[in-house]
């Protein structure tokens, strides 16, 4: 009985000491914590690239610098960024006017750095002789939820096309590619049809389309680039004539709406900290390799050089680095 009492007392004592230490230490420690941490948040589209860069950067620094990368979406990221909570914001679109004002209101200046392209390719079987190009409206008619079970033949998409059933291949609902396609082709509040063959493995999609003359599918441009011999790309017409997906048309911004540049926004005042500056430089320097590795399309080398220049001069504000970005 005595021993348990003693134990209980010593436990209380230890608790009290810990609480005291906690209270006294708290105020002094709180300020230092953010020092070597780079806080990044924002778009889930940009996340895989920033994650890869963060992983490599931390490895190269042997843990001396800590990087956190969150997924709040582009809008959510800018909200936190303009509230001063972040060092870098990931964005799958340029900053909006309203967000610029929000940042300005808090006195937050930022350097805009385009880091890659997010591009999709619609592909058909090489023996498909009719669908050389499609309009975005035709793609919508083919893929929207309302088409499920009703629109099943090529002839229903464009008069004159064969009266045979098409088979559809696409990424599963978990993938960012799926989200992007739905967003730009079907529109915000529209659902994709579900009677297609989904796969998260692009190989399966390529194989599916390459074996079936009546198949159509879509996936990341980077993957199409590696499989040009097995599938045929469809030129996309968004109202200004049909444009084939190619590195050139992605780069000059004419391959729309299935390609878009994606960005990171670095807080200018955070660039005074060596680790943020080094991270941003590291990002641009290793972008070509890492962007490819996570299946996005890198910018031309000249753009990365221009962006590095912009970074070193701390040129702030929303300014296209060149036409199309």
């Amino acid at each position: 009985m005595i021993s348990t009492k003693l134990r209980r007392r010593s436990a209380i004592l230890a608790g009290a000491v810990a609480a005291l230490a906690f209270v006294t230490n708290w105020g002094t420690q709180a300020a230092q914590s953010q020092n070597n941490t780079i806080a990044i948040d924002g778009s889930s589209t940009v996340f895989p690239i920033t994650e890869a860069v963060a992983e490599e950067f931390q490895a190269s620094k042997r843990g001396a610098v800590r990087v956190t990368v969150g997924i709040s979406g582009t809008g959510g990221g800018f909200k936190k960024f303009c509230n001063g909570e972040l060092d870098i914001s990931n964005a799958s679109r340029p900053i909006k006017e309203s967000e610029q004002q929000a940042c300005a209101a808090k006195g937050i200046e930022y350097v805009e750095l385009p880091i890659a392209y997010d591009a999709l390719t619609v592909v058909v079987n090489p023996r498909n002789t009719w669908a050389a190009s499609m309009t975005t409206a035709e793609l919508k008619a083919m893929w929207e939820g309302a088409a499920e079970g009703k629109i099943t033949k090529w002839s229903q998409i464009r008069p004159g096309w064969p009266d045979v059933k098409f088979t559809l291949f696409g990424p599963g609902a978990d993938s960012g590619t799926f989200d992007y396609f739905n967003e730009v082709i079907l529109g915000k509040d529209n659902k994709s049809r579900t009677d297609y063959t989904p796969s998260e493995d692009d190989n399966v999609l390529v194989q599916g389309v390459s074996r079936d003359q009546n198949a159509l599918g879509y996936f990341g441009f980077a993957y199409y680039d590696l499989n040009k011999s097995r599938v045929k790309a469809v030129a996309i017409d968004s109202g200004k004539g049909a444009v084939m997906p190619a590195v050139a048309t992605v780069n000059d911004g004419t391959y729309k709406p299935l390609s878009r540049p994606i960005y990171i926004y670095v807080k200018k005042s955070a660039l005074d900290r060596a680790e943020v500056r080094e991270f941003s430089e590291f990002y641009l320097k290793n972008a070509t390799r890492l962007v490819r590795e996570v299946d996005y399309v890198p910018l031309p080398d000249a753009d990365y050089r221009a962006a590095t220049q912009r970074l070193s001069q701390r040129e702030v504000g929303r300014k296209p680095l060149r036409a199309g970005l």
């Binding site: 992983e55 931390q58 956190t68 997924i71």
Partner: peptide
């Protein structure tokens, strides 16, 4: 905001030097 890529550990609660 815990949905985050984190590749480091928090500081150790126990230190080699005082306190």
């Amino acid at each position: 905001g815990a949905l985050t890529f984190i590749a480091f550990l928090p500081e150790s609660p126990f230190q080699g030097k005082p306190p």
